[in-house]
Computed example of a mutant assay.
Amino acid sequence: MSTFHLKIIAYDKIFYDDEAASVVLPAIDGEVQILTNHEECVVALKTGEVRIGTPKGEMIPAVCGSGFAEVTSDNQVEILVDTIERPEEIDIRRAKEAKERAEERLLQHKSRMEYYRNTTSLARAMARLKEANKYRH
């Protein structure tokens, strides 16, 4: 199976730095799958699910915040996001509380900047809850 080098970096950690067979990303205009020998590009990412396909055929799910991915001609993919975590790392109680806080703040109709900040917080909390519930048994 052909592979490429994938490196995923969040502001506080390197989440993944190894070979991969594929990666599915939440682009702002829909999901994007990157495979070996993908054309060079830069992709803007939104909060959502990331799925890494390993060379052994395993799937590594994660939920990320906004950021971007760069695919280079030498089979390298580098992803920079503000946050990324595996579903089992998500504290469901805290995610629910964050969702409720963001919903409450959206009802307060403050400044435009606060509106965008709160919609981003709400999207992140909802994505975290969705992924945590999807992969928990």
Rank of each mutant, 00 (worst) to 15 (best):
S2L: 12
S2I: 09
F4S: 05
K7D: 05
K7H: 10
I8E: 02
I9W: 01
I9K: 01
A10P: 07
A10G: 13
Y11P: 06
K13E: 13
I14Y: 01
Y16W: 06
D17R: 02
D17M: 06
A20C: 04
S22F: 12
S22C: 05
S22Y: 12
V23G: 02
V23L: 03
V24R: 12
P26Y: 02
A27T: 05
I28C: 10
I28S: 13
E31V: 05
E31Y: 11
E31S: 12
E31L: 05
V32P: 07
V32N: 07
Q33R: 15
Q33K: 14
Q33H: 03
I34Y: 00
I34N: 00
L35P: 02
T36V: 11
T36E: 11
H38P: 06
E40M: 12
C41A: 14
V43Q: 09
K46D: 14
K46H: 12
T47K: 03
G48E: 07
I52H: 02
I52R: 06
G53W: 00
K56W: 05
K56Y: 11
M59L: 15
M59E: 15
M59H: 09
I60V: 15
I60F: 12
I60S: 09
P61Q: 09
A62W: 02
V63Q: 01
C64F: 01
G65H: 08
G67K: 01
G67N: 10
A69H: 04
A69G: 08
A69F: 00
V71P: 01
V71M: 09
T72K: 08
S73P: 04
S73C: 07
D74C: 06
D74A: 10
N75Y: 06
Q76N: 14
V77Q: 03
E78N: 14
I79A: 00
L80S: 14
L80T: 12
V81G: 03
V81T: 08
D82L: 04
R86H: 07
E88Q: 14
E89L: 08
I92P: 07
R93H: 14
K96S: 02
K96M: 12
K99E: 11
K99C: 01
E100M: 12
R101K: 14
A102P: 01
E104H: 09
E104K: 15
R105F: 04
L107F: 04
Q108S: 13
Q108R: 15
Q108T: 13
H109N: 15
K110G: 09
K110P: 00
S111W: 08
M113I: 15
M113D: 15
E114Q: 15
Y115I: 00
Y115T: 01
R117T: 06
N118I: 04
T119V: 15
T119R: 14
T120K: 15
S121T: 12
A123T: 01
R124H: 11
A127H: 02
R128L: 05
L129E: 10
L129C: 09
L129Q: 03
K130M: 11
A132E: 04
N133D: 11
Y135W: 14
Y135Q: 07
